[in-house]
């Protein structure tokens, strides 16, 4: 649905996006992840025909953004970082205007406005001035604007920024609900957001593509070995931590056992497995059979956050050469 091949965007003094390529299939939700100033907004602006790429090709639904911008624009709904709202318009008026811009007229327009308003839950503010709306409502009107002409592709630039936690959850649910019918790219620098909403991730840092894969693959790929936190208590009398540690080390597949904390006859260990071995069941058995009480056992799996930090910091030495600072 979306194809980006070797896209580069250069400004006079620096390169905002450097040779980025990725593809997004129909109906997928893709998280566009990167620190602030990584080039997410620039890439999105290229896809929405707001900016032309300096090099490379980008196409949406088979239409090139440079050669057939009208066809691309017809198929795209775009929510920029700040929702493009006219504060002195009422919500209904605004949607009416946007609908006309997108080429909807008459009954079609009225039908789409009421459908979209229901979908994003803004029916109750239709006669309110946009200037008087809360941030959460504004964001929803922004999403309504992008959805209005029922586009194949939705491009959402930080759709949850500035919302309160409840609104963030609502917005994420809304976006998840839209997948399938729409192909969605959403950018964010909040990692849990990608984990909870997206199937695939595109990570960029300082204008360069760092990784693109599914969320699961990415965390698996980076994880390799398993980390398990084990908390043990003595059944009676003082706890012999040395004995516990020996027992844990004897479990097959364990490569390393580290004592983390010891307090009031309770000890915390961090156990690392060998590559590709699952050790939790064996650890539990070993502890119990040794006559100790197992009070906690948790997989300290690698979060996307760790993956992200690893990937973007691995990129560090090379990208330091390129110039810093982005205005957009």
């Amino acid at each position: 649905m979306i194809k980006v091949e070797g896209v580069t965007k250069r400004y006079a003094r620096f390169t905002a996006v450097d040779n980025v390529s990725f593809e997004v299939g129909k109906g997928q939700i893709v998280g566009f992840l990167g620190p602030n100033g990584a080039g997410k907004t620039t890439t999105m602006r290229i896809l929405t025909c707001f900016l032309p790429p300096s090099e490379g090709k980008a196409s949406v639904a088979g239409f090139d953004v440079l050669e057939q911008p009208m066809e691309v624009k017809r198929r795209i709904g775009y929510l920029p970082e700040t929702p493009p709202l006219y504060p002195d318009m009422e919500v209904g008026e605004y949607l009416d205007f946007v609908g006309k811009l997108k080429g909807l007229r008459g009954n079609d327009l009225a039908k789409r406005i009421s459908e979209t308003s229901d979908k994003v839950n803004i029916g109750d503010v239709r006669n309110k001035l946009i200037a008087k709306l809360s941030k959460g409502y504004r964001q929803r009107v922004g999403i309504a604007q992008a959805l209005l002409h029922n586009p194949d592709v939705l491009i959402l630039d930080e759709p949850t920024s500035g919302l309160d936690p409840k609104q963030i959850l609502e917005t994420r649910d809304l976006i998840k609900g839209l997948a399938g019918d729409h192909t969605i790219i959403l950018s964010t620098h909040i990692l849990p957001e990608v984990e909870s909403t997206c199937e695939r991730v595109v990570i960029i840092s300082k204008g360069k593509l760092v990784a693109t894969d599914t969320v699961d693959n990415l965390t698996n790929r980076m994880r390799g070995s398993e980390n398990v936190g084990v908390e043990v208590e003595s059944v009676e009398g003082t706890l012999d931590t040395k004995a516990v540690q020996r027992r844990l080390e004897q479990v097959s597949g364990v490569s390393k056992v580290v004592l983390r904390e010891e307090k009031n006859n309770r000890a915390n260990f961090e156990v690392e497995s060998l590559q590709g071995r699952s050790i939790r069941a064996d650890l539990a058995r070993a502890v119990v059979e040794g006559g100790f009480a197992l009070t906690e056992l948790k997989a300290a799996g690698m979060s996307l956050e760790d993956v992200f930090l690893q990937l973007t910091s691995a990129d560090q030495p090379e990208s330091d050469k390129s110039e810093k600072g982005e205005s957009a």
Binding site: T48, P84, L85
Partner: peptide, 14 residues
């Protein structure tokens, strides 16, 4: 200033 120009320029109007 308000960024609504992005809406106009990314809508299917010339």
């Amino acid at each position: 200033r308000t960024g609504t120009i992005e809406l106009l320029l990314t809508s299917p109007v010339t």
